[in-house]
Design a protein around this nucleic acid. Structure first.
Lengths: 197, 197
DNA sequence: CCTACCGATCGGTAGG
DNA sequence: CCTACCGATCGGTAGG
């Protein structure tokens, strides 16, 4: 019990610092472009010290992606409400997703999206299970749009298009004064559901 | 004159082999993940030999992106026809773009899309001019959709959504027997223009 | 968590 | 275009 408490505190301390700093560096420079030395220095450590907390650089990447999926799934589940109209449910999910990939300090999911192939196959296979949960929530919401007449055709394809368009925003979105993620979410929703405005 | 001819032949020979091999490796492993040794070996050279053709690894990346933009712009311009109905023009552009990013051996533009930040700022600034030409063609087509009543709202945002959704296909599209880029183009067009089907 | 270090690999070069 | 090599940097480790 004491041991469990100690480990939890540990996770929230230096280990967590490393994961957050690595996420930022992986996002900015890519997995290969961010050296262990850079990660160590970002948290005020010497170059060998992160290996006290992680067995390898790969394990840090895994921790980043795991943390991203954990946070992302938590935030996403929190806005899923069974009695919401399809378009309102869609808007809520869009807003959460934009926050997950665009908001300052949320580097975990962008790292996952753009460094997925840097993960070992073993880790990919394990993490894909959680990714599937995430996709299933979205698939439900898109199916809801279809059933409510907002979308026709192939709903799996529709989900991929919607999420793809948003995920690619990571490459071009620059936050500007005056517009919030709320405004941006409205634009995304308006674009995809414009046929019923 | 003889010198010009010789250089042209040279470009189409070993230099071109290096650019094509590098494009494939940059696409598969990323710019940092693909070593000069791997690029050299892919064309049957020793590790120092590519430097007879290029001053640096960075210059190979620049050549890959330049070739991608050149080919892409050429193919794209070829399908732009002033008297085409807006939806037909859109479909033609979608098909060309899918071919550019998904067809086997077309690694140049995917490398550009996902290794853009590996380019020096100087090269980015120069290449962005050509990118803008590409975007302008698409903007025209999307404006055409808007004017014909296929789309409402912010047409620049619409362009970014449409291209983003397609560009992200690079991360999930796996060619399957029986479906062609024609079928896929139809699905993309149907999705974005479904409100007027 | 630091110090001091390892072997491996990297991009790039000189000389032919 | 090859051979042979360079200094720099990489991820990772042993010992404290």
């Amino acid at each position: 019990m004491a041991r469990v408490l100690k480990e939890q505190k540990h996770d929230d301390g230096r280990r967590g610092d490393i994961v957050r700093a690595a996420a930022k560096l992986f996002r900015d420079k890519g997995y290969d472009g961010a050296s262990m030395r850079a990660i160590a220095n970002a948290v005020g450590m010497q170059c060998g010290s992160p290996f006290y907390h992680f067995a390898s650089k790969q394990d840090i990447l895994v921790a980043v992606v795991e943390e991203g999926l954990r946070q992302g799934l938590e935030k996403t589940r929190a806005v899923v409400k069974p009695n919401l109209p399809a378009d309102a449910q869609f808007r809520a999910l869009v807003k959460v997703h934009l926050s997950i990939i665009l908001e300052d300090g949320n580097d975990f999911i962008p790292v996952m999206l753009y460094n997925w192939r840097c993960l070992d196959e073993v880790h990919q296979r394990r993490l894909i299970a959680t990714k599937d949960e995430y996709d299933a929530i979205w698939q439900n919401a898109v199916n809801g749009l279809h059933n409510a007449g907002f979308l026709g055709g192939d709903t799996k394809f529709a989900r991929l298009m919607v999420l793809g368009a948003m995920n690619f925003m990571v490459t071009w979105y620059k936050p500007k004064k005056g517009d919030s993620l709320d405004t941006l979410s409205d634009k995304v929703v308006a674009f995809f559901l414009s046929q019923h405005a």
